[in-house]
């Protein structure tokens, strides 16, 4: 369970807006990928699955997968905390190419 991307209509009509100040929780319409100039890349051979990067990611984009970890690049902002926290140096920051 986590907030996920929805496809939004190009044009909103009055009926689409909530008629009070509540709305569905975890409703995402935009990614954060464009904020990034560098991206973390995990070397799964070096990764021991200690999960420190998963624990310390402010955006929660690192998840457990097959004894190692995986990154959701749609929402990673490229802060680099994961690289710094990794004792095994299994994460490298690479420049985003256009």
């Amino acid at each position: 369970m986590k907030p996920y991307l929805r496809s939004i209509k190009a044009k909103w009509t009055l009926q689409d807006y909530p008629d009070n100040t509540t709305y569905e929780a975890g409703y995402l319409i935009s990614k954060n990928a464009g904020w990034r100039s560098i991206r973390p890349v995990i070397d799964t051979k070096k990764c021991s699955g200690c999960l420190q990067c998963y624990l310390h990611c402010p955006d929660g984009v690192i998840s457990k997968r097959d004894g190692a970890v995986a990154i959701d690049y749609d929402f990673c902002k490229g802060c680099g905390i994961c690289k710094r926290i990794c004792k095994l140096k299994a994460i490298e920051m690479e420049a985003e190419s256009k």
Binding site: M1, K2, P3, L5, G26, L28, S30, K31, N32, W35, R36, C50, L51, Q52, Y54, L55, H56, C57, P58, D59, G60, S63, K64, F75, K77, G78, C79, G80, I81
Partner: peptide, 23 residues
């Protein structure tokens, strides 16, 4: 880290990169 709930309840937010508060 191992026993922590794998669900994410605060995700896709627009905090600055590396924000301590959002963590």
């Amino acid at each position: 880290a191992n026993t922590l709930n794998e669900d994410e309840f605060f995700y896709g937010h627009k905090a600055c990169a590396g924000c301590g508060g959002s963590l």
